[in-house]
Amino acid sequence: MTTVDQNHTLTGTGVDGVSIPAVGFGTWPLTGAECTASVLQALELGYRQVDTAQNYGNEDAVGAAVRESGLPRDEVFVTTKFNRESHGDVATLRRAAEASLERMGLDHLDLLLIHWPNPDQDRYVQTCESLATLVETGLIRAWGVSNFTPAHLHRVLDAGLVPPVNQVQLDPRCAQRQAQAAHAAAGVRTAAYSPLARGGEVLGTPEVTGIAARLERTPAQVVLRWHLQQGRLVVPRSANRGRQQENLEVFGFELTAEDVAVIDALDTGEGPRLDADTYGH
């Protein structure tokens, strides 16, 4: 069987070997008590990475779940992201990190990401440098970027900085091959958000349902396994207990090379829903 590690390692500028669970729990658009209950349920089921963001408006609810879970803090990997007003120097970044920690009621973040590059203000390269420096303070263990295109990434790399991870929209219909190639060449880990796409447009295809039937797995498990066998982190989201459990049970079977090729062929070549050159917050 193709070995798929349940944890990956983040390495980049200022970060040397931080372990991150391969399957995270996405929390958008959950808020309030519903979010806290869903995260608590996910942690009970065995999730050990929780993904949130300032813009989701649920950092407080996520933090409450982490605290109420009874799990040691070092057993739960917490990822959050910050908005455009926090791009800039180390002091600006520190304020953003401390604000997230105050909302969460936690003492450190495991991973802090730039949510969008916001190239109109042209501060994302400086912000990457500041993030790498912020690791030294102990407030964050690792840093990274989100929604960076290869062009954005190359500017960061040209400045001598290697982001440990880039979290992007990626699914069989939107495989972002250029981004994946850029990440692989630079040693940047790819994390896929919306890994199952939306509205069943992937899970209901005969290619995926056929593989799922043969393997006696669900279509969602097949698609998540497709990601994991190619070395990506995934951040699926669901408030449903059954689907949460299903999304974790992706390590006990294997896709053949032919299966992977069939799912690869679903790629439309289209980019993500939102254009990171014009959209951001």
Rank of each mutant, 00 (worst) to 15 (best):
E34A: 12
G70F: 04
Q244G: 04
G160I: 09
Q221W: 04
I211R: 01
A192S: 11
G46A: 05
R95D: 15
F148S: 14
L170C: 15
I114L: 07
R48L: 05
L266P: 06
R225L: 00
N55E: 10
A96H: 12
T92M: 09
P206Q: 12
A53Y: 03
D120N: 14
G204V: 15
D277S: 09
P172F: 00
R141H: 15
F253S: 00
Q229I: 12
D122K: 14
F251M: 00
A181L: 13
R232P: 14
G70C: 07
L10W: 02
L170N: 15
H227W: 09
A192R: 04
Q221A: 02
P219I: 02
T52N: 07
E34V: 14
S238Q: 03
G210C: 11
S146A: 06
W143C: 12
A220K: 00
P172H: 00
E98S: 15
A65T: 01
N83P: 11
V15C: 01
V76Y: 09
G144F: 13
P117I: 03
D60K: 13
T11Q: 10
L170Q: 13
R173V: 01
E201T: 14
G187N: 02
P29R: 01
V39L: 07
G32N: 10
L161P: 01
T79W: 07
D275C: 06
D89W: 10
H227A: 03
G252H: 00
E129I: 08
R177M: 12
Q230Y: 02
Q176D: 06
L255F: 07
G88E: 12
V156A: 10
D110F: 15
L10P: 00
E207F: 02
I140R: 05
C128L: 14
L134R: 05
R214M: 15
G204Y: 13
T9H: 07
V145M: 09
A257G: 11
N166F: 04
N240L: 15
A197L: 07
Q169I: 15
L71C: 14
K81I: 15
L10D: 01
V66D: 03
V135A: 05
D259W: 01
R177W: 08
G231H: 01
R241I: 05
A185E: 14
R103K: 04
A175D: 11
A99S: 13
A220P: 02
G200T: 09
W116C: 00
L71E: 15
G57Y: 10
R217S: 10
T27W: 02
A276S: 13
C35G: 06
I140F: 04
I20K: 00
D74E: 11
A257T: 11
G210N: 09
V23E: 03
C174L: 12
Q121C: 09
G280I: 06
D158P: 11
L228S: 08
V39I: 08
Q178S: 14
S130Q: 13
R273K: 14
P117D: 02
T13Q: 04
N247P: 09
F148M: 12
A265Y: 12
V222S: 05
E246V: 05
L101G: 07
L106K: 13
L106I: 10
D277A: 08
L112D: 02
R173G: 06
A239F: 13
T13V: 10
